[in-house]
Measured scan of single mutants.
Amino acid sequence: TEELDSELELPAGWEKIEDPVYGIYYVDHINRKTQYENPVLEAKRKKQLE
């Protein structure tokens, strides 16, 4: 659920942004990119696909 997503600790260099226009998204300051999917959940999903 969304509530559990926010409890996950983000990897180093990541920041969660709550924007009133664009909603919640994540900033990867190391690689200078943004995405809507939580990077922790993304990594778990990719691992399940292997």
Rank of each mutant, 00 (worst) to 15 (best):
A12E: 15
Q48P: 02
H29V: 08
A43V: 10
T1G: 10
L41K: 13
N38L: 06
E9V: 10
E2K: 08
E15A: 05
P39G: 04
S6W: 03
T34A: 04
L49Y: 12
G23S: 01
I17F: 07
L41C: 10
Y26R: 02
Q48M: 14
G13N: 13
E3Q: 08
E37L: 08
E9R: 09
T34L: 02
V40K: 12
Y36W: 11
E42N: 06
Q35H: 02
Y26V: 01
E18T: 14
K44Y: 12
S6Y: 11
D19G: 02
H29Y: 05
L49F: 05
P20W: 05
I17W: 06
R32C: 09
V21Y: 09
L49T: 13
V40C: 13
E50D: 14
V40L: 13
I24C: 08
E37G: 08
E3S: 07
H29P: 03
D28T: 00
L41H: 14
K16Y: 00
N38M: 10
D19N: 02
A12D: 11
D19F: 01
I24T: 14
K16R: 13
S6F: 07
S6G: 12
L49I: 07
A43Y: 05
E42R: 02
K44M: 12
E50T: 09
D5V: 14
W14V: 03
Y26L: 01
K47R: 09
A12M: 02
K47L: 13
Q35K: 03
T1E: 15
I17Y: 12
Y25V: 11
L49M: 15
H29N: 13
A12T: 10
K46M: 05
L4D: 01
G23L: 00
N31P: 01
Q48G: 08
L8W: 10
D28Q: 00
T34W: 08
P11Y: 03
Q35F: 01
L4I: 15
L41R: 13
R45W: 05
R45T: 14
P11I: 04
R45Q: 13
D5F: 13
Y22S: 13
E15F: 01
L41Q: 14
L41N: 10
K16F: 01
V40P: 04
P11K: 10
Q35A: 07
L4H: 15
V27A: 11
Q35Y: 10
Y36L: 12
K44T: 08
D5Q: 10
Y25D: 05
H29D: 02
E18V: 11
V40N: 13
A43R: 11
R45H: 02
K47S: 14
G13L: 01
A43Q: 13
K44N: 10
T34I: 03
V27N: 05
W14R: 04
V21R: 13
L10I: 10
E2V: 13
R32Q: 15
L10V: 08
Y26H: 04
Q35N: 03
V27S: 06
L49A: 13
V40E: 07
Y36Q: 10
D5A: 14
D28P: 00
I17D: 01
E37K: 06
G13Y: 09
T34M: 07
K46Y: 09
P11M: 09
D28R: 00
H29T: 14
Y25W: 05
E15H: 04
E42V: 10
K46E: 07
N31F: 01
T34C: 14
D28M: 00
W14T: 07
E42S: 08
P20A: 04
A12C: 15
A43W: 08
Q48L: 06
E3A: 04
E42W: 07
N38A: 10
Q35T: 14
V27E: 08
E7P: 08
L8T: 11
R45N: 05
E15Q: 08
N31E: 04
K47I: 02
D5Y: 14
E2N: 15
P39T: 01
Y26D: 07
A12I: 14
L8H: 10
K44Q: 11
I17G: 02
R32I: 04
Y36A: 11
T34K: 08
E18S: 05
R32L: 10
E37N: 13
R32Y: 00
V40T: 14
R45M: 09
